[in-house]
């Protein structure tokens, strides 16, 4: 019994102190860590694929007007599965290594991406033009769009 207590003591004391100084010193996660997502609204084409695969349904797509599509990310519900980043065809969604997401203001965990889109003449649905010039051509000539269906 004494022997095993000694062995235990050796295990314990051999390890030394392992407490990390975090949060007083930074402690970066491993490479490839799935942290808070970032959205580059420039790259987004508003396809909504991310919202489709999002398990916790924290990505909400709304079309406030015919040529605007708003993607809202309510990240306080995010489960950090990174499926949105995986399915994004334009790599507009990227996963950062940020894990310190505690906040007093829920707005910190909201991302809003507005995508200006063309709307189809026939069905009224938004679509993304291939170039900015095309977009200007679609929206510019039509003037202020009427409210969608």
């Amino acid at each position: 019994m004494i022997l095993s207590k000694l062995k235990e003591a050796i295990i314990c004391l051999g390890a030394g102190r392992v407490t990390l100084p975090y949060p007083f010193a930074p402690h970066p996660p491993a490479e490839g860590f799935r942290g808070k997502v970032e959205v580059d609204s420039e790259k987004c084409i508003g396809c909504g694929g991310c919202a489709n695969v999002c398990t916790p349904r924290c990505i909400v797509v709304t079309d406030p007007s015919q040529d605007t599509r708003v993607l809202e990310f309510f990240l306080e519900r995010c489960t950090y599965c990174a499926r949105c980043a995986e399915v994004c065809p334009e790599e507009a969604i990227t996963v950062t290594e940020q894990f310190e997401t505690a906040t007093n203001d829920t707005q910190d965990m909201h991302i809003k991406a507005e995508v200006y889109m063309g709307s189809c003449q026939r069905c009224g649905r938004c679509f993304e033009t291939s170039t900015a010039l095309d977009k200007l051509m679609v929206t510019g000539f039509q003037g202020v769009p009427e409210s969608g269906e």
Partner: peptide
């Protein structure tokens, strides 16, 4: 056990809930 959690983070991007 702690190193294996780091290993998981390295392989899958998360300590738990590998996804």
């Amino acid at each position: 056990r702690e190193p294996i959690m780091w290993l998981c983070e390295k392989i899958t991007g998360s300590r738990k809930s590998f996804g």
